[in-house]
């Protein structure tokens, strides 16, 4: 067990080191930050002074080790554009992204499962065809197109939902939430639905496939033979078994949602981390870019690590293999 645990931990550390190197390389290969920091009329001496004070003239390995040490402490330096610590900026923007991702995941999971069950049961139905067709649109249309369509429909034409921003937020000290105000709740609807569509489609199809497979199994036939109600068969016996892979996939995809939120946040002017990242890219604000990359990689690695560890407890086959190997 301990060996398995450390092996996974070591693998995660290697991945993080590689990501760290990539995010560090940004400093050397993406444009010249100095040009963006100072006005066009700044003299060449001042430019080189600034390079020196930012440590951009040190050898690469020294810059890299400094980067690793600081990154492990959660420090990514000062933003070139906003002149504030990057760690502070990220923690400020984190609540907006987490709330958006949480609501999106919830919408995707709940409606995806319900629609998936429905289409799985009524395979030839008219509504099933419509649901599947629309869900196909959800995957094939780019997120920003869907976002803009929603904005035009619900904000410009119908005028019932705000087109941008997060509404009023309540600051709880450690967390700023939009869940406690009406404007905040209204503001989260469009972006979260937009963000959830892709996931939702994914889950609809997964649940549908699972349901169709499970409904063919012997124990369902037996349950039918026993005269159990349809409701009880579908939702209690069939769905329960179908949900195991869905939850696994949905969990892993939370990382994807955070990453995908960049586009949604830009379209809706949602003041989250993805938005911060896009602003940073345009300004070549490398400390923010590398910190964001590092953070997203960390989320992915952590989720994968936790899932691996959970598998160890859930799936006896892995346990046996691991023990045989260490044996």
């Amino acid at each position: 067990m301990i060996k398995y645990f450390f092996k996974r931990l070591f693998q995660s550390a290697v991945v993080m080191l590689i990501v760290a190197f990539v995010s560090f390389s940004l400093f050397n290969f993406v444009g010249d930050p100095i040009n963006n920091m100072v006005g066009e009329e700044t003299s060449d001496e001042e430019r080189s002074q600034l390079r020196e004070s930012l440590g951009l003239n040190d050898p690469v390995h020294i810059q890299f080790s400094r980067f690793i040490v600081n990154a492990s402490k959660g420090e990514f330096g000062i933003s070139y554009q906003l002149r504030r610590p990057v760690s502070e900026l990220i923690t400020e923007r984190l609540p907006a992204t987490i709330e958006l991702v949480f609501i999106s995941a919830l919408i995707a999971l709940v409606s995806g499962t319900l629609l998936g069950v429905y289409t799985g049961i009524n395979r030839k139905g008219f509504f099933s065809d419509i649901i599947l067709a629309i869900s196909l649109l959800g995957v094939s249309l780019p997120t920003f197109v869907i976002g803009i369509l929603f904005i035009y429909l619900f904000a410009v034409i119908l005028g019932i939902l705000p087109s941008f921003g997060r509404g009023e937020v309540v600051d709880l000290g450690f967390w700023s939430t939009g869940f406690l105000t009406t404007t905040g709740l209204k503001a989260i609807i469009l972006p979260s639905v937009t963000l959830s569509l892709f996931q939702m489609t994914y889950i609809i199809r997964l649940v549908r496939a699972e349901m169709m497979e499970i409904l063919q199994t012997d124990y369902i036939k037996f349950a039918k033979a026993r005269g159990l109600s349809e409701k009880s068969i579908y939702y209690k016996h069939a769905l329960k078994n179908g949900l195991i892979p869905v939850i696994t996939i949905a969990g892993i995809n939370i990382g994807t949602l955070i990453a995908f939120s960049i586009i949604t946040e830009t379209v809706f002017q949602w003041p989250g981390m993805g938005f911060l990242f896009i602003q940073a890219v345009q300004f070549v604000d490398i400390p923010i870019m590398s910190a964001y990359l590092f953070f997203i990689a960390f989320v992915f690695v952590m989720i994968n690590f936790i899932v691996d560890i959970l598998y160890y407890f859930i799936d006896p086959r892995i346990r046996v293999k691991a023990e045989a190997a260490s044996g």
């Binding site: 904005i151 035009y152 410009v156 005028g159 087109s163 941008f164 379209v267 002017q269 602003q279």
Partner: peptide
Amino acid sequence: LLPIKNAATRVAALLSGE
């Protein structure tokens, strides 16, 4: 002052009266 980065959203916000 409410900056909106995306041009289409900015126009939509103007047209919707926000």
